[in-house]
Design a protein around this nucleic acid. Structure first.
Length: 295
DNA sequence: AAGGACACCAACCGCTGGATA
DNA sequence: TTATCCAGCGGTTGGTGTCCT
């Protein structure tokens, strides 16, 4: 690809907060012309703004279908569950929340939900308790093949930092989930398929393993709150029934017939999930790695 | 009352992939 | 096939309001 020129003359366009007058111009333009080529909008609407800036103002603030009130507990729970499942794919998550934009969801996550999880002692990236992450960290040596360790460590078996419970070191990432997520809508299959079809983020490949595996998820700590909030049928309709097999939601090319190992029911660590997943990919798709062997 | 710390969120930046000439 | 344009995306920044000392 050739070098892309700037979308507008950045030195001479206005930046910063939008005025009511500018908003009115965008609204008037969209009302009469609809949404089309945003690069032409500033010129046609009489705005001294970058077209991209106009598009963002419309999509994130002016669109008539947007909600401007605060997030409800149900919306928050959905965001948390989707984030645990597919990572920071804000646009995909926002599509499941009518009236919310990816920017809204992202901001709410960064300012509220991330901190909320941290305060509860849960890592907002992996959605696992910090204590478990620390113990899993001690097991890294145990799951790295000997020939991949630094030379000076190859004769060492699991280090002194290893978790006392050896069952954690041989976890099967495809094991059955032990605890249903309190909110996991039926649309999840679709969203997860969308996530898997995208190549822009590595999250999906990790998520499909990570999603059903943790019995210690954030919502375990919120049962009381959640039960209070979800009192009407429309809320409850999106909940999996008690004991429902959440493998239905984990989709994305995982062969759950691999659950033949009768392993402990404790969860798989984030790192283990990645390493196990990569090993499985090597077995399933050896041709994918052909090109890398030269480097 | 002042001002520093913090929280919130609108807006920007830079990158990517799809469409098209 | 290549170059270009555009929309969409996620990460980051900066302005503003609120709280606390």
């Amino acid at each position: 690809m050739g070098r892309r020129p700037p979308c507008c003359d950045k030195l001479h366009v206005k930046k910063g907060p939008w005025t009511a007058e500018e908003d009115a111009k965008i609204l008037a333009y969209v009302a009469s012309h609809g949404i089309g080529n945003w690069t032409l909008v500033p010129q046609k609407a009489g705005l001294n703004r970058c077209g991209k800036s106009c598009r963002l103002r419309w999509t994130n603030y002016l669109r008539p279908d947007l909600k401007h009130d605060s997030f409800t507990p149900v919306e928050e729970e959905l965001i948390l569950n989707y984030h645990q499942a597919i990572g920071s794919r804000w646009s995909l998550i926002a599509k499941q929340l009518p009236g919310r934009t990816d920017n809204d969801v992202k901001n709410h996550w960064n300012t509220k939900l991330k901190k909320k999880l941290s305060k509860m002692g849960i890592d907002p990236i992996t959605h696992k308790p910090f204590g478990q992450l620390l113990s899993d960290y001690g097991n890294i040596n145990a799951i790295i093949p000997t020939n991949m360790r630094p030379l000076d460590q190859r004769n060492q078996e699991p280090s002194e930092f290893s978790h006392a419970d050896s069952s954690l070191t041989m976890m099967d990432p495809y094991q059955e989930p032990q605890t249903p997520m309190s909110l996991m809508p039926a649309q999840f299959q679709a969203i997860n398929e969308a996530a898997s079809s995208s190549t822009s983020s590595p999250a999906a490949s990790v998520v499909q393993v990570n999603l059903p595996s943790s019995p210690s998820i954030w919502s375990d700590y919120l049962v009381g709150d959640h039960e209070q909030e979800c009192t009407n049928e429309s809320d409850l309709s999106i909940l999996p029934s008690k004991g429902e097999n959440l493998n239905n939601y984990s989709g994305v090319g995982v062969d759950h017939t691999k659950n033949s190992l009768d392993v402990a029911t404790t969860s798989v660590s984030f790192v283990e999930s990645i390493l196990n997943r990569e090993r499985q990919m090597e077995l399933d798709f050896p041709q994918l790695l052909d090109g890398y062997s030269e480097y």
